[in-house]
């Protein structure tokens, strides 16, 4: 199938601004699905609210566009009730880690087989450019005219500490790399988190003088380095890209299946 076969073209044009990184991430994701030859009927995409969340409307999967921050809670219900489905949950940074932070850590703790994709542009785009828990200090935003003093979460460390068994990071610039990582994340049996740095030239870039989309993409390239690379070793201030953890661990739906078996055996006795 061609990548366009995974899109609901009826719903285009999309609502993302010119230069937004989210379209590139959608591209990486669809290529991952295509290369894995997954059936569209087996995929449920669940999203919350925000620019990133609109992604679920554009894909030709079962799609569930939910409430701000709650995508993983809905996804947990879908997955546990029908474990044979593949769950893809793209979220924005505020969606996933501010209002949705609790669901994020608990989905990780359960290690339920869902792929969470944090499309991190460090800003609330849809509401017009407020800072998010991933903005970090020293950032200008419409709610931080004198710059932010809030520290940011490190998504990778947070996900690992909370119990996710697959955690990775890439960027919108590294589209091909993102596809490879997403393929592994989707195939991973357990809770997988892929943070993909995205760019919001409209709000973040403009306020923080990072330039246009091309300049911001350039920053994805120059500010990051592959895990284990010499570049990263020499400059630990760079943001690391790659797979940080990939472990086989008890998966929630499989464990629940064992509970069902146990309960039924006991019931027969």
């Amino acid at each position: 199938m061609a990548v366009t076969d995974y899109l609901r073209q009826r719903f285009f044009p999309h609502m993302w601004c010119p230069g937004c990184g989210h379209g590139t991430i959608l591209n990486s994701l669809l290529r991952a699905v295509e290369e894995l030859e997954l059936s569209k009927n087996d995929i449920v995409m669940t999203s919350g609210i925000g620019c990133s969340a609109r992604i679920s409307g554009y894909v030709d999967f079962h799609s569930l566009h939910t409430l701000h921050g709650r995508a993983l809670a809905f996804a947990t219900g879908v997955k546990l009730s029908k474990p044979e489905l593949t769950l893809l949950v793209p979220m924005g940074d505020g969606d996933a880690l501010a209002i949705g932070g609790n669901h994020f850590i608990h989905a990780a703790r359960r290690n339920i087989d869902i792929t969470a994709i944090v499309m991190n542009n460090r800003i609330y785009g849809m509401t017009g450019g407020q800072f998010s828990p991933l903005s970090g200090p020293g950032v200008k935003a419409t709610t931080a005219p004198y710059t932010t003093i809030d520290a940011n979460f490190d998504v990778v460390k947070l996900a690992i500490a909370a119990g996710a068994s697959f955690v990775a990071r890439s960027t919108a610039y590294h589209a091909r790399e993102s596809t490879e990582i997403l393929k592994k994340a989707i195939m991973h049996k357990g809770f997988s988190v892929v943070e993909i740095l995205s760019q919001c030239p409209t709000h973040y870039g403009r306020k923080n003088k990072e330039g246009d989309a091309v300049a911001m993409l350039e920053l994805h390239k120059t500010n990051t380095a592959k895990l284990g690379s010499k570049q990263l070793e020499e400059n630990p201030n760079l943001v690391a890209r790659g797979i940080f953890i990939q472990e086989e661990r008890a998966e929630y739906c499989i464990e629940y299946g064992k509970i069902v078996e146990h309960a039924q055996r006991r019931n027969v006795k």
Binding site: A73, F74, K79, L80, S81, N102, H106, Y256, Q264
Partner: peptide
């Protein structure tokens, strides 16, 4: 679980409501 159904204790009340909608 004795009749093949599913029970999950969620992290909060909001998540419980969201999860049942997903399962429906």
């Amino acid at each position: 679980p004795t009749n093949g159904g599913k029970f999950i204790q969620m992290e909060d009340e909001i998540a419980s409501m969201c999860a049942i909608i997903g399962a429906s």
